[in-house]
Simulated assay, not measured.
Amino acid sequence: MKMAAIATAITTALVSGSALAAEVYNSDGTSLSIGGRAEFRGDFQGKANGDELKGTMDNASRFRVNVGGETRITDSLNGIGFYEAEQTVGNGEDDRNTGNTDFKQRYMYAGLVAGDNTITFGKQDAATVQISQMSDNVSTHSGIQKTYIAAGDEQINNALNYSGYFMDALSVKASLLAASGENQDGYALSAIYTLPFGLGVGLGYAANENDGSQDSTQFIGGLNYTWEGLYVAGTYTQGEGSKKYQLGDNDFTGYEFVAHYRFENNFQALVGYQKGEIDPANLSKFDISDYYELTGVYYFNKSLRTYATYKINNLEDADNSLRLALRYDF
C-alpha cells in the first residue's frame, strides 16, 4: 500500500474514529458518520495494574461511541468535526448491580482539511502521540510513553494541531497547547518517515511549563517495520518533569517493544515488553512499569474479535494478570 493511501486512512480515522464507522447522513456536501466499540474485558488473575484480585474477576469493560462530520467548503477545502466518549462498567466488590452512568469525554475538536494538510482545535492527541502509537497499536497494556508529560499525552484540552503528509512517505505533526492555567502552555513536534521497503523512523519532542515547578520536556523516538503479516516496533523516550509523580525535579526514561504476526487463518500472535523509570533528584530511582505481555487474538470478521492476554509483571509485590476479552467494532 502506498503511503498516500495510508495517510488518507489516518485522516479518515481522525474524522470517523473507526474504519468501520457508518455514514448515516450525506447531503449537499455534508456527511455524518457514527462509530465506536463495545468491549468486554475481564481480568481473572490479578488486576491489570498489578494489584491483588481478591475475587474471581475484575471487570474492565468499556463502551465507546463517536460521531464525525465533514462538510465541503470548496473543491480543495473541507471542514471537519469529531466527538468521542467512553463509558466503563460499574465494578463494585459487593454490589453486582453497580452501574456507571458517566461518559468520559475523550475527543472533541473541529478543523479544516486542505488536501493532505489538516488543522484542528479542541481536545485531541498531542503531536508526539503518533510516535508512541508505533508500539501502542494493539497491545492490551501498552501506552506509557505518551503519559509522562502533558504536552506529549493523548486527549489534551485546548490543543491546536497541524498534520501534513508529504512525498507519500512523511507524516509531520505539530501541536500548540494553550492552557487555561497560568504558566502551563506547551508544544510538541514530530515526524515519521517510512521507507519504501516498510521501515518507519519517527522522532518527536514535547515541552510544557508546570506552573512554577520543574518544566517538562520529552524526547521520543521510534522504529517500526511492516512486511506482509509481520509488524515489529520499538519506542524510547526520555525527559524530565514527569507529571505522573509529584516528587520535585525528576528525570524519566521509558522503553516499549512489540511484535505481532497475523496468520492467514485470522489468528494474531503478539509479544511485548515495557519498562518505565523515574529518577527523582532527592530519592532513589524506581520503576513504574516492567512487564512482558503475551497475547493471542482471533478475528471472526472485521467487526468482532476475541483475545487473551497474559501480563508477566516484574515489579516487586505486583501480581501477574490474565485478561480475556471480546470486542465488537462498529
Rank of each mutant, 00 (worst) to 15 (best):
Val271Thr: 12
Ala281Leu: 12
Gly234His: 05
Ala308Met: 14
Tyr299Trp: 10
Tyr261Thr: 04
Tyr299Cys: 06
Ala281Trp: 03
Leu315His: 01
Asp287Lys: 13
Gly241Val: 04
Ile278Thr: 09
Gly241Asp: 00
Asp290Leu: 08
Tyr307Cys: 01
Gly296His: 02
Leu270Ile: 13
Thr309Pro: 09
Leu283Cys: 08
Asp279Arg: 10
Asn314Gln: 09
Asn301Cys: 10
Ile288Trp: 04
Lys285Ile: 07
Phe257Met: 08
Phe263Gly: 04
Gln238Tyr: 14
Tyr231Pro: 05
Glu316Asp: 14
Gly241Ser: 05
Gly276Trp: 06
Asn250Ile: 01
Gly248His: 00
Glu228Leu: 13
Ser242Asn: 00
Thr235Gly: 03
Asn313Val: 05
Gln268Asn: 08
Tyr310Ser: 11
Val258His: 00
Glu240Met: 08
Leu315Trp: 03
Ala233Ser: 13
Leu283Gln: 13
Thr253His: 09
Glu316Val: 11
Leu230Met: 11
Glu256Lys: 05
Tyr236Arg: 03
Ala308Phe: 08
Leu247Gly: 01
Leu230Glu: 08
Leu304Asn: 03
His260Met: 12
Gly296Trp: 03
His260Asp: 13
Val297Gln: 08
Gly296Lys: 04
Glu240Ile: 07
Tyr291Gln: 08
Tyr225His: 01
Ile278His: 07
Thr295Ile: 11
Ser242Arg: 00
Thr226Trp: 02
Gly272Ala: 15
Lys275Phe: 03
Gly296Ser: 04
Tyr231Asp: 10
Leu247Pro: 01
Lys311Phe: 10
Phe300Met: 09
Phe252Ser: 01
Gln274Phe: 06
Gly229Tyr: 05
Asn250Ser: 09
Phe252Lys: 01
Asn301Leu: 03
Phe300Asp: 04
Val297His: 06
Phe300Ala: 05
Ala233Arg: 05
Ile312Val: 13
Ser242Asp: 09
Leu294Ser: 12
Gln238Lys: 13
Asn224Tyr: 04
Ile278Arg: 05
Ala308Leu: 14
Ser289Arg: 05
Arg305Phe: 07
Asn314Gly: 07
Glu293Ala: 15
Glu277Thr: 11
Ile278Ser: 11
Gly248Met: 01
Gly272Tyr: 02
Tyr225Glu: 02
Asn224Gly: 00
Tyr299Asp: 14
Thr306Gln: 00
Ala308Lys: 04
Gly229His: 09
Gly272Gln: 07
Ser303Leu: 12
Leu247Val: 12
Val297Lys: 07
Ser303Lys: 10
Thr309Asn: 14
Glu228Lys: 14
Phe257Cys: 02
Gln274Lys: 01
Thr235Ile: 11
Glu256Ser: 03
Asp251Tyr: 00
Tyr310Ile: 13
Thr237Leu: 15
